[in-house]
Design a protein around this nucleic acid. Structure first.
Length: 376
RNA sequence: GGGUGUAUAGCUCAGCUGGUGGUAGCGUGUGACUGUUAAUCACAAGGUCCUCCGUUCAAGUCGGAGUACACCCG
């Protein structure tokens, strides 16, 4: 049977491991490397779907949503009855759903891990819910996303070697159960997730185990969980190549501008991150000259655009002074405009990266970007 | 004109029977945020405790006068 998702590798940079490709899904294709905006609760916070579709020059063609959150509320069965996640949220392009694996990490004390799965306590009403690999796949099937992620354990940092080792082995066993349970491979594609924490040999072992299962795509999980960036880059130096070059490689949860460049340079094709939308709601903008905190007093009477080099809707129409005024008055338009700008900035930067790879000048573009952006 | 009450951070207020001014809220200033429990969180600055006199070893706190404001009565 034909896989729902297929990767087409178009070009490789001659100096670095950067690649240019395209992922084809039942809900259209997206060019890679790609940044996927995050819409955890079936919405990219503060953004209308048509605005997401209009980001950058070409628009965003894939977003991420979350299995655990939608399972809790409004419920995957409800979304299925609504006609699936795409229809429910009015997004007819590709959707990738995270499995709930990250919540094993982020929900901290509110869960208990066993061989069977994870017992979560709902942060909404305190009720208990058993999530297993099978359950995660069932829920993602009901949601109808194009790419579904394996249910994994995202280990914390720092973590003992023995803990990470057991966690990685558990993740592999769970991946096998996910694959076993996943039947509609012509409608949805399951991506496996590498773990192994900050231990290179464990990363290698994890990669070997999951690659053997011959899935249509692979992700690197368990990075950007609090470790220094240099350490993350060092781990990536080693482990990206362990994933098959003919499959898309997805670095989960990463999305600061510098990390995108560093990831692409090491052969990553897909990224997702809440950072641009979260920091936007907290008043921080990414600009070509670096981070800009809109609540700083010095912007009170700055009537220029957020980023003079940006051509987004926000920069074309609003001043820093206005955006600051919105923010300090607690107006929701502040979140909307800053989210749109930040997402545009990352989506546009990725478009530039893709073009640079096509023209075989990725490193040149990266240096150009870094020079202008300054300190991260 | 008389009575009553209030006066402490930029604002709104805690501060018991005197013992170095408050983990107070908001505001202000700054920072953090990376598969979203996050329109969140953290830190900092900022005061002749209205003025004067008195009681006391010691007064934001007790007494008196003044001033300002609020309300009530003429």
């Amino acid at each position: 049977m034909k896989h729902a998702v297929r990767f087409e590798l178009k070009k490789k940079d001659s100096c670095t491991k950067a690649r240019r490709g395209c992922v084809h899904t039942p809900h259209g294709s997206f060019e890679t490397p790609v940044f996927m905006p995050v819409g955890t609760q079936a919405t990219v916070k503060a953004m209308k779907p048509e605005s997401v579709a209009g980001l950058g020059r070409e628009g965003a063609h894939v977003i991420l949503s979350n299995t655990y959150h939608l399972y809790l509320r409004p419920g995957h069965e409800l979304i299925k009855r609504a006609g699936g996640l795409h229809k429910f949220m009015n997004w007819n392009r590709a959707i990738l759903t995270d499995s709930g694996g990250f919540q094993v990490f982020s929900l901290g004390k509110m869960r208990k891990i066993s061989e069977e799965g994870v017992r979560f306590q709902s942060y909404i009403d305190g009720s208990y819910h058993m999530f297993t690999p099978e359950r995660s796949i069932e829920v993602q099937e009901a949601l109808g996303s194009d790419i579904i992620m394996a249910f994994d354990e995202c280990a914390p940092y720092p973590a003992d070697r023995s803990y990470v080792e057991q966690s990685l082995e558990l993740t592999t066993r769970w991946l096998k159960r996910c694959k076993e349970r996943h039947k509609n491979i012509d409608q949805q594609s399951l991506f496996g997730i590498m773990q192994g924490g900050m231990y290179k040999d464990l990363r290698r072992r994890s990669a070997e185990q999951i690659v053997e299962l011959d899935l249509p795509g692979y992700a690197i999980g368990g990075l950007s969980v609090g470790e220094p960036k240099e350490l993350m880059y060092e781990i990536m130096d080693d482990c990206v190549d362990l994933l098959p070059s003919e499959k898309p490689r997805y670095l989960m949860g990463v999305g600061s501008p510098d990390c995108l460049f560093e990831g692409v340079e090491r052969g990553i094709d897909m990224f997702d991150c809440v950072l641009p939308t979260r920091v936007a709601r907290h008043g921080l903008a990414f600009t070509s000259r670096g981070k800009l905190n809109i609540k700083n007093a010095r912007y009170a009477e700055d009537f220029g655009p957020l980023d003079p080099d940006c051509d987004c809707y926000v920069c074309r129409n609003y001043s820093r002074a206005y955006l600051r005024s919105l923010f300090i008055n607690g107006e929701m338009l502040s979140s909307m405009l800053l989210s749109e700008h930040n997402l545009h900035f990352l989506v546009r930067t990725m478009e530039n990266i893709r073009q640079a790879i096509e023209e075989d000048r990725f490193t040149e573009y990266k240096n150009e970007f870094y020079d202008k952006y300054g300190q991260f």
